[in-house]
Design a protein around this nucleic acid. Structure first.
Lengths: 293, 293
DNA sequence: GCCCGCTATAAGCGTTCCTGATGGACGATG
DNA sequence: CATCGTCCATCAGGAACGCTTATAGCGGGC
């Protein structure tokens, strides 16, 4: 299970073509064919169906492993490269959309910053592989509990902000007059499913609010990253949205009601490669210091 | 960064010798020397000091990455092998000591079981690499919250038991008469540090009970795995011990007082390789079914 | 000061791995 | 239904890699 073989395997699976993968990887088609054959021989399992080229069930599982493995490998290389690299004058930050708010934006240095918005899951990977010097992720957690992040590589996470959560309802909604909402009040409600723009609802399920099996019923799925659109959808009655209270309060044409039970908060964390802990100077350290003060 | 090179690197680092590592790996000393040279050239970093052979700071970091990487690789291979392997009649279970209690033991099949007690951190790895068919881990968590486990590989975790926590005090202790204890009552207390036999105290720190910087003061460190010894140490006044309430209640010569704040429980989870989800029959499925019912 | 053990380097050789060419299978097209 | 085109599998040759054997260089112990 050579990483080279895994790399060509995931490429073939992604492109659904041996020849295409060969072009992308700079190999001949023959080499790619031999790579796949070697993998299948090694594991004694068929990994791909040919014509059309698609992963078998075993291949599907290998894809999960291979993805994580190659990511981990890139992360290791990037981490070690940082040891040798000269400190740079620029700062590249990867952040999930809702992690960008007054508190974090204020901490950014005045010049030399590249800010990249990414889906929540991609932020740890970006920091681990060195694509970003630092990351900002947000999520739902119990007060002063750390977020549950996929540990692709040793990363140091520090909490930088916590704020209440609020439910965004149409002004005409029967519960819009409440001063606070319990999740139990909303078990029958329809939610907006907006993994990129909003908050991951599945963190609520199971842990609190009833038996683990009960999911959240979703009315509409929004795949963009724009929070204003999400709020507008909620205002238009397409479903309820869960947002950090400061964001929810700004929504026009809708009412924001704080979530009071279960006791959960919107939390933002700073992600750094564990190696840079010791680094005393440079834009990363500057950013870190301003976030913590 | 070939896995073979990483493998020899970690071996050299562990044995602090090129020649020893060569013997263990079945290479010549020359090959090992070339492996290390290749790694150092690739990363453009010195990884080991020679005479004595010891990792440099960069080498220390590589060790962390390499360990996780090789583990992940073994896990992937084991997971894929399960696809091809014929279902077996035996069941091998890896468990942390406190995960073994009436509820879990009752679910074990009558015959063909190998039960291996391991330190808490090693259980996920054992399941991932296929050394065990299933795992039982315990830990501290908020009620109906999942445990925080290192994700070495895609594993499926299911809660199987939760029970209150109790503090074990000498009968003469001023707080021994209480019917319940708050963690705040105990900030100044001395604790027994028993990572193998007891519960990991650091889960308490930070999340609850005050500023994150405040640690737990430990009086005595016990490195064995025997819970009775731990209890005896607590009874003898060497420090306080935190245990699941049913276990703590059985301690003679000491008093067990339930922990009532923060609201935390002792939780046991079943760990299965994510692949075996679909497996409908066999001893693993049998064990799973009996645990869940 | 000599010797022993350890790591580094050099040369040789077997194996691996990639390329280029060719064969065979499937699907599209008329 | 025949033909063509595309795509993957296979084969043979050559370059490159990686391991072994042999030897040099360096330190520490006696």
């Amino acid at each position: 299970m050579d990483p080279h073989l895994l790399r060509t395997y995931v490429t073939v699976a992604r492109l659904a073509s041996f020849s295409e993968a060969a072009r992308e990887l700079g190999y001949t088609q023959s080499a790619v064919s031999q790579h796949i054959a070697a993998l299948e021989a090694d594991l004694a399992l068929p990994l791909l169906t040919r014509r059309p080229v698609a992963p078998t069930p075993a291949g599907e599982r290998l894809l999960e492993h291979a993805g994580a493995l190659l990511l981990r490998l890139d992360a290791a290389r990037a981490d070690l490269d940082r040891f040798a690299a000269a400190p740079r004058a620029t700062l590249s930050v990867a952040a999930s959309p809702l992690a960008l708010h007054a508190r974090t934006l204020a901490a950014l240095p005045a010049t030399g910053v590249t800010l990249r918005a990414l889906p929540r899951e991609a932020v740890p990977a970006a920091v681990a592989t060195g694509e970003a010097d630092a990351g900002l992720v947000d999520g739902i957690a119990a007060p002063s509990d750390p977020l549950r992040l996929p540990d692709v590589a040793p990363l140091a996470a520090t909490g930088v902000a916590e704020e209440p959560l609020a439910v965004v309802l149409p002004t005409t909604h029967p519960l819009a007059g409440r001063s606070g909402l319990r999740l139990d009040d909303l078990v029958d409600a329809r939610w907006l499913d907006a993994p990129a723009a909003g908050l991951p609802l599945d963190r609520l399920r199971g842990a609190h609010g009833g038996p683990a099996g009960r999911g959240f019923r979703t009315a509409l799925r929004y795949e963009g990253t724009d929070t204003r659109t999400l709020a507008a959808l909620a205002a238009a009655g397409h479903g309820l949205a869960l947002l950090p209270a400061p964001v929810a309060a700004d929504v026009s044409g809708a009412t924001a009601v704080p979530l009071i039970a279960p006791r959960l908060v919107h939390r933002t964390e700073l992600l750094l490669p564990a190696a840079s802990r010791a680094e005393p100077t440079g834009p990363v350290a500057e950013f870190t210091r301003r976030l913590k003060s």
